[in-house]
Design a protein around this nucleic acid. Structure first.
Length: 774
DNA sequence: TCGGTTCAGAGTATT
DNA sequence: TCTGAACCGA
C-alpha cells in the first residue's frame, strides 16, 4: 500500500485515500488525474475495502477505458476482469443485454452508429413522404439525439410551435420504427437504462448495492442524461468519485454540460473537493501562458497550475505573411527539432479545423517528413466493413431493415429500386419487416429476393457450427463480397480491410473480456433474472419461459463491439511520424514540442463560436488545452492571409495571443506591426499605441499586400469606391476603419471592416453607407 | 445501374 | 478550393 502512495504529492494522496464518500477532484491539465483515478481504485482494492466487482469506473472513450485497465493490471497484478471499467455506452449495452426483457428489447438488439441512425431517419422520412428540404434528416437526427441526451422522450419534448411539434412526432415514429426493427441508437442505450432503473426499483437497488464505488473520469464532459444515470446508479451506500477539469470542457457543442460539476457538488453535498494544481508536464513559461489565458474566462471553478520544473524556453511565436509561408516555417522548425534529436512522434502540430491540415501536409510531404494525420474514417466505418457487418447483423436479427436494404443488392444481384418498392409495400401492408415479406413479392424480382433470403438462412445455419472468424469468412465468400472486390480495379484495399475484419473477429474471440465478458455476463443475467423475477417487474414484451436467458451469442457480442468501438481514427501507424491533429483530438495527449497553428481571429477563436452561448469561453478553453499539451517547447503561429473556401482571407492575430504574458513569448517575426499588433476586441479594449490611426497602422506595414497591387479581392462597385482590402473607410456610426475582407458581389457584397474601438464588423455594402477615407 | 456533371456548403466529435 | 451529395443521361 505504501508503495502505491509513495510517488504521490499531498493532494493526490489525499484524493486517493479519501474515505468512502463522494468526492470531486478538480484536476488541472497534466496534474496526474488518471494516475489518481487508477491509484484510488488500486488502493481501495488492495486495502480490502472493496471487492473488484463492487467497483464501477466510467470513461468516455474505449481508449481511456483500455488505458485504465492496462495500468491497473500493471499496478495490482490481479484479475481486472470482474471490474466494470468501460464507457457509458459499454456499461449500458451490458445492462440491456442482461435485462433486455425488462427493458423491452430483444436480446440480440443491434446498435446503430451515427451513420446507421441517419439512414434510419432518411428511410423514415421518405416513407412518410416528408419534404426533406423543410425537414432535413440531419436536423431531425440532431433533434432526436439532443432530446435523448436531455433525458426526454418524444412526449416530453417541449413543443411551442408547429415545427417542433412535427419534429417531436417524427421522433416518436422514429422510436417506434427502431423498436420494431430491434435496433438501438447510442443515446437510446443510455436512456433505456435510465428509464429501466427509474421504474424498476429492485433492479435499481441491485446495482446500487453492488456498486459501492463509482468513479468517473472527464466529468466535465458528461451530458445531462449521463449525470442523471450516475445519480440513478449511486445509492445511499455508494461513493461517487468524479474527476474533471472545467477548464478543459470543450464539448459543450455535443451536449456536454460543465454545470454537472457544480450540480454534483451541490446535490450530493460533496464533502471532499480536492484541487490538483501541480503540473508535472510543462515548463513554467508554458504554464504561465495557460494560466494567463484561462484567467480571462469568467465562469470557472478556479484553479492555478504551477510547476517546480523551472521556466524552460520561452514560447515561440511567429507571424507569417501567408498560410503557405506558415507551413514552410513550420517545416523548417520541425526539421531543426528532428536534427536536434527529437523523435517525430514527440512533435505535434495542432490546428483548429481539419481543413487546415492540407497546406501543412503539402509542405511536410514536399520536405519528406513522415507525418500522421488523426481523424478520418475509422475501421468499422468503412463501407466494405459495414457491408460485411450488415450480413452478420441480418443473420443475427432479421428484423434489421437498415441492414437488409444496405446489402439486398450489394454486391449487385439484380434487385432494383422497383423490386424494393414492391417489397416495402408488401412489408407495410403486413406491418412486418422487409426480410419476412421477401417471399411475398411476385415476379423475377421476387424470385431474386427469395434467393437472397435463402442465402441468409443458409449462412445462418452453416455458421452455427463455426467459430466467429470462420463465420465471418463464410459470409465474405458466400455473399459475393470477396468476389466483388476482387473484380474491382481499386478493390485491393477493401479486400484487405475485409481480411482485417476476420482478424478482428479472431482477436475478439480470443479476448472478449475487453468488451463483454461472457462469464460475467451470464452470471449477471442469471442474477438479475432473479431480481426481476422476485418482483415480477419484467416489463418486456415477451412473457414466455421463465428460464434464465441463454448467453448472448458471440456474434451478437462482436456486432455490439463493432458498433461501440469504431476502431482507430488515426492513419496507419508505422514509422516514427509527426503527429497532426485538431486541438480537440489532442486532448489528453502530450508531446515534447507542440505547434499551435492558425491563431487568427475567425479561425481560432472560430467565427461560428462567437454567436454561441459561451462560445468564446469554450474556444479559450480549447486554446488552453492546446497550450497545455506541450512539455518543453511550444510554438504559436498565425498568418496574415489564408486560403479559405477558395478565397484569400485577410486575418488579424487571434485575441488569444494578446492574452498571453508578453515576457513569456519570444517573437520570431517582427512584432507589433500590422496584424501582429493584436486584435482589439470590445468597446473597452484599448489600442496598442493609441496615438496611431488604423490607417497608419496598415500604412506602416509594407509586407501587407499593398493595396494598389492587383489583388483578387479588389472589386469595384457602383458606388464608385474601389473596395479593396486595406482601404480605409468611414462609417457613420463606427467611424474610421480598414477593410479586412470582401465577400460576394452585387447586392450580396459585404465587407469586413476593422473599426478599432468598435472591433471588426461585417457590413453589407448595399446597406452600409461607407465613404472612402484617408 | 452506372458514371459523369452540377451545386451547395465548408467547425470541433465520442459512443 | 475541395468535397460530398444529388441528379441526369445513356
Amino acid at each position: 500500500m505504501s508503495r502505491l502512495l509513495a510517488h504521490l504529492n499531498e493532494p493526490q494522496r489525499t484524493a486517493v485515500t479519501l474515505p468512502a464518500e463522494h468526492a470531486l477532484i478538480l484536476a488541472g491539465a497534466g496534474s496526474g488525474k488518471t494516475r489518481v483515478l487508477i491509484t484510488r481504485i488500486a488502493w481501495l482494492i488492495s486495502t480490502g475495502q472493496v471487492h473488484p466487482r463492487e467497483l464501477l469506473a466510467v470513461t468516455f472513450t474505449n481508449k481511456a477505458a483500455r488505458e485504465m485497465t492496462t495500468r491497473l493490471g500493471a499496478l495490482l497484478a490481479l484479475e481486472t476482469r470482474s471490474m466494470w471499467i468501460g464507457t457509458f455506452h459499454g456499461l449500458c449495452n451490458r445492462m440491456l443485454r442482461a435485462h433486455h426483457r425488462e427493458a423491452g428489447l430483444v436480446q440480440s438488439f443491434q446498435i446503430l452508429d451515427s451513420a446507421d441512425q441517419l439512414a434510419v431517419i432518411k428511410r423514415l422520412l421518405r416513407g412518410l413522404g416528408v419534404d426533406d428540404v423543410r425537414f432535413p434528416p440531419r436536423n431531425l437526427q440532431h433533434f432526436i439525439n439532443s432530446a435523448k441526451e436531455e433525458g426526454l422522450r418524444a412526449s416530453q419534448v417541449e413543443t411551442g410551435d408547429d415545427y417542433s411539434r412535427q419534429m417531436a412526432e417524427f421522433y416518436r415514429l422514429y422510436d417506434e420504427q427502431c423498436q420494431r426493427e430491434g435496433v438501438v441508437d447510442f443515446a437510446e442505450l443510455l436512456l433505456r437504462v435510465d428509464e429501466l432503473l427509474a421504474r424498476n426499483e429492485l433492479l435499481r437497488e441491485h446495482y446500487q448495492l453492488r456498486f459501492r464505488h463509482i468513479l468517473i473520469d472527464e466529468f466535465q464532459d458528461t451530458n445531462r442524461l449521463q449525470y442523471r444515470l450516475l445519480k440513478r446508479l449511486a445509492g445511499a451506500g455508494s461513493a461517487l468519485f468524479a474527476v474533471g477539469d472545467d477548464d478543459q470542457s470543450i464539448y459543450a457543442f455535443r451536449g456536454a454540460n460543465v454545470g454537472n460539476m457544480s450540480a454534483f457538488e451541490r446535490e450530493f453535498k460533496v464533502p471532499n473537493l480536492i484541487r490538483l494544481e501541480q503540473n508535472y508536464r510543462s515548463h513554467g513559461n508554458i504554464l504561465r501562458c495557460a494560466n494567463a489565458l484561462i484567467a480571462n474566462n469568467a465562469h470557472r471553478l478556479g484553479k492555478t497550475l504551477w510547476t517546480d520544473a523551472g521556466h524552460g524556453d520561452q514560447v515561440r511565436i511567429y507571424e507569417a505573411p501567408s498560410d503557405i509561408d506558415e507551413a514552410r516555417w513550420l517545416v523548417s522548425r520541425v526539421q531543426a527539432l528532428i536534427d536536434e534529436g527529437h523523435a517525430r512522434s514527440d512533435i505535434a502540430i495542432l490546428y483548429r479545423s481539419n481543413a487546415q491540415s492540407r497546406v501543412l501536409e503539402h509542405a511536410l510531404f514536399s520536405a519528406g517528413i513522415a507525418y500522421r494525420v488523426y481523424g478520418g474514417l475509422r475501421f468499422f466505418e468503412r463501407a466494405e466493413v459495414k457491408h460485411a457487418l450488415a450480413y452478420l447483423r441480418l443473420m443475427e436479427n432479421p428484423g434489421d431493415d437498415g441492414a437488409f436494404l444496405r446489402i439486398v443488392n450489394f454486391p449487385p444481384r439484380g434487385i432494383g429500386a422497383r423490386t424494393i418498392e414492391a417489397l416495402q409495400d408488401a412489408a407495410s401492408s403486413t406491418g412486418g419487416g422487409l426480410h419476412d415479406a421477401a417471399g411475398t413479392v411476385a415476379g423475377a424480382g421476387g424470385a431474386r429476393l427469395a434467393a437472397f433470403v435463402e442465402m441468409l438462412a443458409r449462412l445462418r445455419a452453416e455458421s452455427a457450427d463455426l467459430d466467429l472468424p470462420a463465420s465471418v469468412e463464410l459470409v465474405l465468400s458466400a455473399s459475393g463480397l470477396n468476389a466483388h472486390y476482387s473484380a474491382e480495379r481499386e478493390g485491393q484495399d477493401r479486400l484487405e480491410n475485409l481480411r482485417e475484419l476476420v482478424n478482428a473477429a479472431a482477436s475478439f474471440e480470443a479476448d472478449p473480456g475487453r468488451g463483454l465478458s461472457s462469464e460475467d455476463f451470464t452470471a449477471l443475467a442469471g442474477g438479475a433474472g432473479q431480481v426481476a423475477g422476485d418482483g415480477g417487474a419484467g416489463a418486456g414484451a415477451e412473457t414466455d419461459e421463465a428460464a434464465p436467458a441463454p448467453a448472448l451469442s458471440q456474434l451478437a457480442e462482436f456486432l455490439a463491439h463493432a458498433s461501440l468501438e469504431a476502431g482507430d481514427n488515426q492513419a496507419a501507424d508505422g514509422a516514427d511520424a509527426l503527429q497532426l491533429m485538431t486541438v480537440h483530438s489532442a486532448k489528453g495527449l502530450e508531446f515534447d514540442a507542440v505547434f499551435v497553428t492558425g491563431l487568427e481571429e475567425g479561425l481560432f477563436p472560430h467565427e461560428n463560436s462567437l454567436s454561441e452561448n459561451d462560445g468564446l469561453e469554450e474556444e479559450r478553453r480549447l486554446m488552453y488545452v492546446a497550450i497545455t499539451r506541450a512539455r518543453q517547447l511550444l510554438h504559436l503561429s498565425f498568418s496574415q492571409t489564408r486560403m479559405l473556401h477558395g478565397q484569400t482571407r485577410y486575418s488579424l492575430q487571434s485575441r488569444f495571443v494578446g492574452e498571453l504574458p508578453p515576457d513569456a513569448l519570444k517573437w520570431l517575426s517582427a512584432k507589433g506591426r500590422g496584424a501582429a499588433a493584436g486584435w482589439q476586441g470590445g468597446a473597452d479594449a484599448a489600442w496598442e499605441g493609441s496615438g496611431r490611426s488604423t490607417t497608419a497602422r496598415y500604412g506602416a506595414q509594407p509586407q501587407r499586400p499593398p493595396a494598389a497591387q492587383a489583388d483578387p479581392a479588389t472589386r469595384n462597385f457602383d458606388r464608385g469606391i474601389a473596395y479593396r482590402v486595406g482601404q480605409s473607410v468611414t462609417h457613420a456610426k463606427f467611424g474610421e476603419g480598414v477593410i479586412l475582407a470582401i465577400e460576394g458581389r452585387g447586392e450580396d457584397a459585404r465587407v469586413q471592416v476593422n473599426f478599432g474601438r468598435a472591433g471588426a464588423k461585417w457590413l453589407a455594402l448595399s446597406l452600409a453607407k461607407l465613404q472612402a477615407a484617408g
